[in-house]
Each structure stands twice: as C-alpha cells, then as structure tokens.
Design a binder for these strands. Sequence first.
DNA 1: CAAAATATATCACTTAGTGGTATATTTCAA
DNA 2: TTGAAATATACCACTAAGTGATATATTTTG
Lengths: 101, 101
Amino acid sequence: MNKTILEVINETTQDLHKAGVMKETTLREFDALCLPVVKTFSAQQITQLRMKNKVSQAVFAAYLNIGKSTVQQWEQGHKKPSGPSLKLLNLIAKKGLEILA
Amino acid sequence: MNKTILEVINETTQDLHKAGVMKETTLREFDALCLPVVKTFSAQQITQLRMKNKVSQAVFAAYLNIGKSTVQQWEQGHKKPSGPSLKLLNLIAKKGLEILA
DNA sequence: CAAAATATATCACTTAGTGGTATATTTCAA
DNA sequence: TTGAAATATACCACTAAGTGATATATTTTG
C-alpha cells in the first residue's frame, strides 16, 4: 500500500501498453502522445479543403511550399499526402489556411 | 494618359518580371507570392530549434508527424528537410512548437 | 549502481514530391 | 463576342525525403 503516485501511474502505463492501448511504455513522451490524431484525407476532401479556402491549386501549393503538380496528384488520388504534408493539411483543416501565412 | 489603374499595375508587373524581381507576370497568384519566404535550416539550426522548444527528438518528430530517424538524419546533416517539412520548421521557428498542437 | 530513456549511427526500401511538357477548360478584358 | 490569359487536368521519369528496423553509445534518474 506504500506505492507512490508515480508507481501507480507507471503500472497503469505498463498495463495500457500490454493491452495495446498505448504504443509506448514510458511517460517521457507523454505530452507528444497527447497530440491530436493526424487524420488522413481523401482526394475529394483535399479538394474541398482547398475550395473552402477559396484558392487555386497553385496558390494552395504555395502555402504548403510544395509544387502544384503535387496538389494535382493529391486531388486526383494518384499520390497521397503523408508525414509532414499531412500534418499541414490537418493544420489547415483545423485552423484555416491563414495559419500558414 | 487614359490608362486604368489596372493597366499601370500590369505594366509595372511586366517590368518587374523582366527585371527579374518577380517570378510571375500575373497578379492572380499575387497573394500567394506575398507569403513569407521559406527559409532553409542547417543541421545545427534544426537542433537549436528543437532545443529551444525543450523536447527530445522523438517528441519533436511526433509534433511534425514524421519518424524520429528523420529528425536524427536532419540533425546529422544526412538528409535535408524541404517542401512541406521545411514549411513546418519555418512555422515552428516563427510561432513556436505549440502551434502544431 | 542499475535501469530506463535518449541519442547516434546505418541501411535498404518505398514512394512522395519535383519539374517538365502537353492539353483541355474556364475566366475575363477588349 | 472573341481571343488571350489563367487555371485545371494529365502524364512521366527522376531524385531524394522519409520510413522502419536494428544495433550501440550516452545520459538521466530512481
């Protein structure tokens, strides 16, 4: 019964890990794990996101610092944004294009 | 002397283009061209940027939605961030890591 | 001290992103 | 209304960014 709060938390963390709920078993990266989930976007959703912000593919690309051919291929479903570009799309969806200005 | 404002602007734009000041000759994408220049980062500068925000490579990677090995290679100068990842670094440098939360 | 967390170091692989060109399609000014 | 400019679609070969894995210091901390 002499467990510290930290001990309890750590045990809980281990259990969550075993149960497959948590990817990590430590708390050091806990704040990072609390980051919002990065959603994926379908080709249509990307187009909608751009339209909602009322910009052309070229301007949209400029905001993201990518080539316009990349935006085209996203919207045509030939390439899929991932990693850093997906993060940018999530930012736009959540806070608007202007956040990149 | 009967030039419209637009005509004058367009002529000026053409001249700026000829002079090599502007990449484009049109005004349609003008707002996009007004976007802040996306700066590049040296390996050391990336490390400094991460340090300034007091996070580990793993946490930093989580914020950017990239793998930690990518951050490692950036900081070791083996790979260079570009496009969307460079945009994210510029955002962090200008507005802080929290903007990605 | 010992264990856990963090950082460094490679490496082969996948595929995103590039930059080019060519061709509709749409918009807008004369 | 008509033609030029802007925008969008389409395709392609290439480069290299980012991945995910593993193995090994190095540092932090209980």
